[in-house]
């Protein structure tokens, strides 16, 4: 890896880590289910961008693009299912607050 590529990787890595911290904090702190899904999305986006940057600096953009497309497909399915579950929770509890999820069986 050349010095210029390494510097590019570090620069992007800095912002990717910040985005990751943002999403992680959102998941840990929030009490709203939809906002928790937003946090999860941010985590996935940080991972996706990291993959693209690694592909660029190592010269394997075809491989990383194929993997990123797989990630995006899985991301969409996870989000749609999570949104459906959040809706079901809302219908049961009349709220999206995770503290009110105390009527679950088991």
């Amino acid at each position: 890896m050349s010095g210029e590529s390494f510097q590019l990787f570090l620069t992007f890595g800095f912002f990717i880590v910040l985005t990751f911290v943002c999403g992680l904090y959102c998941i840990v702190v929030t009490r709203n289910l939809i906002r928790a899904i937003v946090g999860l999305e941010l985590l996935i986006k940080a991972a996706t961008l990291l993959m693209i940057v690694v592909g660029y600096v190592t010269g394997r953009t075809a491989l990383t693009q194929a993997m990123v497309i797989t990630i995006i497909v899985i991301e969409v399915v996870v989000t749609a299912t999570a949104a459906g579950i959040a809706l079901r929770v809302f219908r049961h509890n009349e709220s999206l607050d995770v503290r009110k999820l105390n009527r679950l069986k088991g």
Binding site: T48, G55, V73
Partner: peptide, 15 residues
């Protein structure tokens, strides 16, 4: 900008 146009199109349309 990082040379991944197909992934970018997926990201734009899907995400």
């Amino acid at each position: 900008r990082l040379g991944s146009p197909l992934a970018a199109v997926f990201e734009l349309s899907v995400c």
